[in-house]
């Protein structure tokens, strides 16, 4: 019996070792090459667009419609069209990423909510200027060389300057985008400043 105990221990160790060494299924990188654009977004509607408000319901919205109803609430509709296009691509990539990472909270499963926890969404709020910006970048993606779908996050920042603290930070300054556009930068130049090592790609 005494001889069996070490043998049994050895056996258990071997089994444990084999278990831990078994190949882990690698999660394939979700890229624009293997992941289609979503057709819909599940939006948790919080009361009064309050980030801490209770979730009232989850609204399923067409992807482009969602982007059109985010942009005028995140960028000012009368801002420079190049700033709006930079914002439109950021809003789209941010949403695309989150449709790949849904959450369940308060009994609801959703991709984003309608507040600044994600992006401020207000149904039916699209304006002609912001709708045009969403349309202009709709077949574009802005991604790392691998094509991985990553969020283009942003913060409001401050008036009347490029907001240097954001440059290269992978966070775009909304006010900074407006300033840069007003001094002649294109939406792509704006994105390049705030999100280094990413490239424009076409998607269908």
């Amino acid at each position: 019996m005494r001889r069996m105990v070490p043998a049994l221990s050895l056996l258990i160790c071997l089994i444990a070792l084999a278990w831990s060494a078994s190949p882990v299924k690698a999660q394939p990188l979700q890229t624009i090459y293997n992941t289609p654009q979503p057709t819909v977004v599940r939006v948790a509607i919080r009361a009064f667009n309050n980030p801490w408000g209770p979730i009232l319901w989850v609204q399923t919205v067409g992807f482009q419609e969602y982007c059109s109803d985010v942009l005028p609430n995140e960028w000012m509709p009368d801002w420079n069209p190049q700033a709006l296009e930079a914002g439109a691509l950021a809003a789209k990539m941010f949403a695309w990423y989150n449709t790949l990472h849904p959450v369940t909270h308060q009994g609801f499963t959703y991709d984003v909510d309608n507040t600044t926890n994600y992006q401020y969404f207000k149904d039916l709020s699209g304006t002609p200027q912001t709708d045009a910006a969403v349309q202009a970048v709709w077949n574009m993606a802005y991604v790392p060389p691998s094509g991985e779908i990553l969020p283009l996050d942003y913060r409001s920042g401050w008036h009347d300057g490029p907001n240097w603290v954001f440059v290269g930070s992978t966070f775009m300054s909304q006010w900074g985008s407006q300033y840069l556009a007003s001094v002649g930068h294109t939406f792509l130049q704006i994105l390049n400043l705030y999100y280094p090592n990413r490239q424009l790609r076409w998607v269908s």
């Binding site: 990472h101 913060r155 603290v165």
Partner: peptide, 16 residues
């Protein structure tokens, strides 16, 4: 100060 200078490789920061 909520501006990280780098986004983690797997950006899975929890949200409320």
């Amino acid at each position: 100060s909520d501006l990280p200078m780098r986004v983690p490789a797997n950006n899975t920061a929890p949200r409320p």
